[in-house]
Simulated assay, not measured.
Amino acid sequence: MQLNFKKTGSGSPLIILHGLFGSADNWFSIAKELEKDYTLYLVDQRNHGDSPHSDVWNYDAMVEDLLELVDSEGLRKFYLMGHSMGGKTAMKFAVEHPDRVEKLIVADIAPRYYPIHHQTILAGLNSIKLDQIKSRKDADDQLAQYISEIGIRQFLLKSLSRDSNGFVWKINLPVITEKIEEVGKSLNEGEKFEGPTLFLAGGNSNYIQQSDLEDIHEHFPAYEIEFVSNAGHWLHAEQPAAVIQEIRRFLK
C-alpha cells in the first residue's frame, strides 16, 4: 500500500509514526523543530489520515506498508520513531528488519499485550450520524455525551473531514471498530532488536510500567528509558519541548 506522508527538512532521515485515531499532522509542531537537523517523514498509517483504507489492518500489514515506503524513497538505513500504535509498528519493523533501523524511539507503549480499552471512544465516534450533522459543533456535541475531556474530543475530531457530499471520516472507522483487538497485540516471543532503543514514557501515563522493563529488555537489550514529567499518553502534545530534547539527545 502506498502510504501518504509529508517530507520536510534536511539531514539524516527520521520516520515518525502516529498512534491510533491519529495522523501525520499530530507531529507538525515537533517536526518544525527537528527539521533543522533531520529529513523527516511524517507518515499516515493505513486506515488513518490521507492514506488508503483497507479491510486488512494488523501490524504485519503496517510493517509491509512501511517497508514499501522506505524502499520507494531509497532509504537504506534511518532513524525510526513511533507513538502508541505507531510505536508497536516501529518495534515490529525493527525486529523484522534490524539492518534498516539505525536507532529506534518508542513513545509510551511497551511490547506487551494490551487489553481492549477504547470502547467508549469507539462508541462515541460511531454515535455520530454523519448524514445528519450540519457542523463540527454538532459532532462535538454528540461526542461529548461519551467523552467529557475536550482535548480528547478535539484530537479525535481532527479525523472528521468534509467532501462534496458532507462529513466523512478519514479513519476507517468500521474496520478499526471491528478489529480493535489488533492494536493491542504483543511482539512475538524471541523477536529482538539489538540496536540502540529509547523508550519515552509519560510520567502520568500507565502505558509503560516498571513491570514492563523486563519484557522490554528481552526484546530490546540495548534500550534506555526516560520518563517525561507532567505528561500522559500524548506526551508529545503535552510536553513537546521535553520530547524534542530527548529525541535530539538520543539521536546525536
Results as ranks from 00 to 15, higher is better:
residue 195 G to S: 05
residue 238 E to N: 05
residue 84 S to P: 01
residue 234 W to E: 00
residue 190 G to K: 12
residue 181 E to Q: 14
residue 176 I to Q: 04
residue 248 R to A: 06
residue 19 G to R: 04
residue 128 I to T: 02
residue 72 S to D: 06
residue 170 K to W: 12
residue 186 S to W: 00
residue 67 L to Y: 05
residue 68 E to I: 10
residue 4 N to V: 03
residue 194 E to M: 10
residue 73 E to F: 03
residue 27 W to R: 00
residue 113 Y to M: 08
residue 20 L to H: 06
residue 161 S to E: 12
residue 55 D to Y: 05
residue 205 S to K: 11
residue 79 Y to D: 14
residue 115 P to G: 03
residue 158 K to A: 04
residue 139 A to E: 06
residue 109 I to R: 00
residue 54 S to D: 13
residue 170 K to I: 10
residue 231 A to F: 02
residue 148 S to W: 02
residue 222 A to E: 13
residue 214 E to T: 15
residue 51 S to V: 06
residue 115 P to Y: 03
residue 85 M to T: 01
residue 44 D to Q: 09
residue 252 K to W: 09
residue 215 D to Q: 14
residue 219 H to Q: 07
residue 202 G to P: 05
residue 220 F to T: 00
residue 12 S to L: 13
residue 232 G to R: 08
residue 204 N to Q: 14
residue 75 L to C: 09
residue 133 I to K: 07
residue 49 G to K: 04
residue 147 I to W: 00
residue 57 W to V: 11
residue 121 I to K: 05
residue 146 Y to Q: 03
residue 26 N to H: 03
residue 22 G to K: 05
residue 163 D to V: 11
residue 236 H to L: 03
residue 15 I to Y: 09
residue 152 I to L: 12
residue 195 G to D: 05
residue 168 V to D: 00
residue 104 L to Y: 02
residue 164 S to A: 13
residue 75 L to T: 08
residue 237 A to E: 11
residue 12 S to R: 15
residue 26 N to A: 01
residue 1 M to R: 13
residue 24 A to I: 07
residue 7 K to T: 14
residue 89 T to C: 09
residue 182 E to N: 15
residue 37 D to A: 13
residue 236 H to P: 01
residue 204 N to G: 03
residue 56 V to A: 07
residue 215 D to Y: 12
residue 51 S to I: 08
residue 113 Y to W: 04
residue 234 W to Y: 07
residue 172 N to S: 10
residue 53 H to S: 08
residue 229 S to G: 09
residue 17 L to K: 02
residue 154 Q to G: 00
residue 151 G to C: 04
residue 60 D to G: 13
residue 175 V to G: 11
residue 251 L to Q: 13
residue 153 R to W: 08
residue 252 K to D: 14
residue 153 R to K: 12
